[in-house]
Amino acid sequence: MNRFAPIALVATIALFLQGCAGWQSALDPKGPAASELAWLIWFFTGLCAAVWVLVMIALALPLMMRPRARVEPLVIDADADNRKLRVVLTAVGLTVVILVGLTLLSFFANRTLAAIGSHAALTIRVTGHQWWWEVRYEDATPSHILTTANEIHIPAGEPVRLLLTSTDVIHSFWVPSLSGKLDLIPGRMNVLDIKADKPGVYRGQCAEFCGAQHANMGTFIIAEPREKFDAWWNDQLEPAAAPMSDEAKTGENLFLKRPCVMCHKIGGTPAGGTVAPDLTHIASRQTLAAGTLTMSRGNLAAWIADPQGVKPGSHMPVVDLNGDELNAIVAYLEGLK
């Protein structure tokens, strides 16, 4: 064999493993729940691989060994019979031990996962919609309750409790870098506890097929230091920024006059629709339409001009606007930091 073949093999595997890193990977854990699960994945994979190799060796050995001298079929060979019995019993015993062991491991891993949120200070209600996420920060003071969409800010290093439900079909919340997935079921409340060890942005994805735009139903968990998180929460509670330029003022008027107002809410204006994402601080978010487009003036215009081209089947209708009206509305929304 070529001397360099093993090196090439190792290099290739290392390259492939690089694909496991990133902001959305169960094999690149960034929180205690995901670490527990990643450890479980590797342990299961390793053990099952070892068992598979052993079984393959056990199968290959008799094929390669020279057949033993034939004994007389009528003579009772107590030794051989005993050996067969021992081998079968050992194999059955080992199988039972391994299965029970793995079951116990996943049981204890589940206990660890359940303990993460036992003293969570922050509760966030996540409601799945076709095809976006409604995010509501609960607070004892009603005026501190915050509703936003698609991006979930959390304080890093603190456990957070997510209450998951849905209004239309079953969705599933999955941020692989932080935890396992859990379904959002209409009329039911599921509880998922997450914790991010370090500040960072982790991508999540709907993991239960939920219709035409299931693939474009992304979410982002943005973990920040506590002070930054509190400042963000306070900023988001503010009503929308008043439009500064004439164009943006026209945009606000148009927004309130045209169909936008039937579904969307902008705090501080009469727009109070609750069936579509809250736009009070839309320009402070990093993406549009649940992770479909990055936030920019061009993308905002593209999304409003033809949502059915960007995300066919989404519930955002094509609204009849001329170029000036579109520009004005985009200018207004762009200022809602």
């Binding site: 006059k257 045209r258 169909p259 107002v261 039937m262 209708p317 094509v318 609204v319 009849d320």
Partner: peptide, 8 residues
């Protein structure tokens, strides 16, 4: 009028 797109 104008609040709901005609097709809706």
């Amino acid at each position: 009028r104008d609040k709901i797109p005609d097709d809706q």
